[in-house]
Design a protein around this nucleic acid. Structure first.
Length: 360
DNA sequence: AAATCGGGGTC
DNA sequence: GACCCAGATTT
């Protein structure tokens, strides 16, 4: 075990060679650190960067965020994915505003109890803001430790999680946990990268087991592989009286709390002939008067665990049907739609339509 | 312990 | 197409 040298070399690298600017780096305000960490959960720094800047500009402190409307905050989060993060962000902002009078709690135990904050995020906040000795364990840390110490225990196994956690806590510089945690993540993102790591110029290659054994590309090990589902979404865009029908998604499924048009999901690829559209409108919605049916093939959207394909079917209705006025249903103008969050699958379609319209 | 939850980048 | 990303929550 080369623990002492690992920590020493990492901090040396950090001081001499780490040049990675980020807007939240060195930040001590728990609100901003928390916000950045939640945005960055399973999200690349480059992708989260602009979202962080939008949020801190729009909501200066946690009380301001707590007072914001759900829809305004979801609109700001739109396109970032994993929308339960946004839901929990709002919940925790309101918890801190009420229960803690707007002052972020300063102990790990209190922090980790907040919604949307797990072991990683709590460790990050505790170390960055309060100099508490908690080691962050994220994808970077798993990868670096697996390579440097030559550990092939699967990182997604129970044994692996325990083993890497113990090692990470052992390696932490307890005098400067914030500096150390920032350093190890910067190192993973810029040197010990998932693909094509910079081994030949790495400051730690003299103590790296994987470099010595030429097993860098085999580490870390994962045991589970994900499989992707294919889903067919046909969205009926109903227009009536200069408004459009939209629906807020509330099911335990993707895109919860985002809006959509009238959805018909099918197991296999549908074919929307005039007859099938007519039958569907009549049987499911009791609609008999309609016009200007246009069917457009959607651009497929790749999610991590599923592929979404489908169609957008635009239809003019003579009047608003009774069945489409549930609690989560709305008829909105184009202007109102702009302030509401939609999935990328839908925004993609709306954008393409605007581009085509502007050509005339 | 396993399944879910997005969207974007890299190879 | 497969894998990964400053993970957390639910089942």
């Amino acid at each position: 075990m080369n623990g002492k040298k690992f920590t020493q070399f990492l901090l040396e690298w950090n001081k001499a060679l780490n040049n990675r600017p980020m807007p939240w780096k060195g930040e001590k305000d728990p609100y901003k650190v928390w916000l950045s960490e939640v945005i960055l959960q399973q999200t690349r720094v480059e992708q989260g960067w602009a979202y962080y800047e939008k949020f801190v500009k729009q909501y200066k402190d946690i009380k301001a965020l707590a007072k914001a409307s759900d829809e305004a905050v979801f609109k700001l989060w739109e396109g970032l994915g994993y929308y339960s993060r946004c839901k929990n962000l709002l919940f925790t902002a309101r918890t801190v505003a009420e229960k803690y009078n707007g002052v972020f709690p300063a102990s790990y135990e209190e922090i980790v109890q907040l919604k949307g904050i797990g072991p990683y995020t709590a460790s990050a906040i505790a170390s960055f803001c309060f100099n508490l000795p908690y080691a962050v364990i994220d994808g970077n840390v798993f990868r670096i430790l697996a390579r440097v110490f030559g550990i092939d225990t699967p990182i997604d196994s129970t044994a692996g999680k325990k083993q890497f956690k113990e090692l990470a806590e052992q390696l932490l510089d307890r005098e400067q946990p914030g500096i150390y945690n920032q350093a190890i993540m910067d190192f993973g993102a810029t040197v010990c990268k998932p693909a094509l790591p910079l081994c030949s110029s790495c400051h730690l290659n003299s103590i790296c087991a994987a470099f010595k054994n030429a097993t860098v590309s085999n580490l870390p090990v994962k045991e589970k592989t994900l499989q992707k589902k294919l889903r067919w979404f046909s969205y009926f865009i109903f227009h009536a009286n200069d408004t459009t029908f939209i629906h807020k998604r509330t099911a335990k499924d993707i895109w919860q709390n985002l809006f959509e048009f009238y959805l018909v999901e099918s197991d296999a690829a549908p074919s929307w002939t005039d007859d099938k559209v007519e039958t569907l409108l009549a049987t499911r919605l009791g609609i008999k008067q309609f016009s200007n049916v246009t069917v457009i093939t959607a651009l497929p959207q790749q999610l991590t665990h599923q592929t979404i394909k489908g169609y957008f079917i635009s239809i003019n209705l003579a009047e608003v049907p009774q069945v489409l006025s549930g609690a989560n249903d709305r008829w909105v103008t184009t202007e109102q739609m702009k302030n509401l969050p939609f999935p990328g699958f839908i925004n993609q379609h709306l954008q393409n339509k605007n581009i085509q319209a502007s050509l005339f």
